[in-house]
């Protein structure tokens, strides 16, 4: 399992691996929002948590179609499916690798970009915590979607259509936690729900993803 994680991280960091793609996209979205809504600092600070969460979600979505498609094309998935490592574990590891290369950089970059959107500083910690709790769910749901669509040529659109509705609960509770944090209100309830959703995704979706992938490989 560690071998697979190290290999995926190494591939992401080498040329053409796509590391930083999500981060750059996140940066562009948050940079463009002040230009599009105008220099009203009060309005910007109101919408900042929602914009940051939506940017993070779209940045996650951007790299999903590469998650399994490359391994499918070069035959790696065939070999992984016959390897001693259970396919469920392999997919959980691939989800983890996706989170480390996409979700984690977003979590780290979010407070710096929050400054650009004039978000109240008291909300920075809650923004980071809500993203840290929510992005694992995004990666795991994305892994499941990628497993469902991996055999389909140009499956990226289908993948987005399948995955976006599943992302909505995470987005609602994540953005709500960040918004409450920024407004100085109690954040426990949305954060607990968010953490619960992430844990449920991590626990259940590798099995669903493996079942979907076995169907695709036959």
């Amino acid at each position: 399992m560690i071998a697979l994680l190290i290999r995926d991280l190494r591939l992401a960091l080498r040329a053409g691996g796509g590391f930083g793609l999500g981060l750059a996209f996140f940066l562009i979205i948050t940079l463009l929002v002040p230009f599009s809504v105008g220099p009203q600092s009060q309005l910007l600070s109101t919408i900042a948590p929602g914009v940051l969460w939506m940017g993070a979600l779209l940045a996650c979505l951007l790299s999903l179609d590469r998650l399994l498609a490359l391994d499918f094309e070069d035959g790696t998935l065939d070999v992984l499916a016959t390897a001693p490592l259970p396919l469920e574990a392999a997919l959980a590891v691939k989800g983890l690798a996706h989170w480390i290369t996409t979700g984690l950089p977003l979590v780290i970059a979010a407070p710096f970009l929050a400054v650009l959107l004039n978000m109240p500083p008291q909300g920075f910690a809650w923004l980071v915590i809500s993203l840290a709790l929510g992005t694992p769910a995004l990666s795991m749901i994305g892994t499941f979607g990628a497993a469902l669509t991996v055999g389909i040529k140009r499956g990226g659109l289908l993948l987005s259509l399948l995955v976006l509705p599943l992302y909505v609960p995470t987005l609602i509770f994540g953005a709500e936690a960040a918004r409450r944090g920024a407004a100085g209100m109690a954040v426990e309830t949305p954060l607990f729900v968010l953490a619960g959703m992430s844990l449920a995704c991590i626990a259940l979706l590798p099995f669903a993803a493996a079942a979907a992938l076995r169907m695709t490989l036959r």
Partner: peptide, 10 residues
């Protein structure tokens, strides 16, 4: 199988 399971960047 027909594919080699090799990663081009490794």
């Amino acid at each position: 199988g027909h594919a080699d399971g090799l990663k081009a960047m490794l």
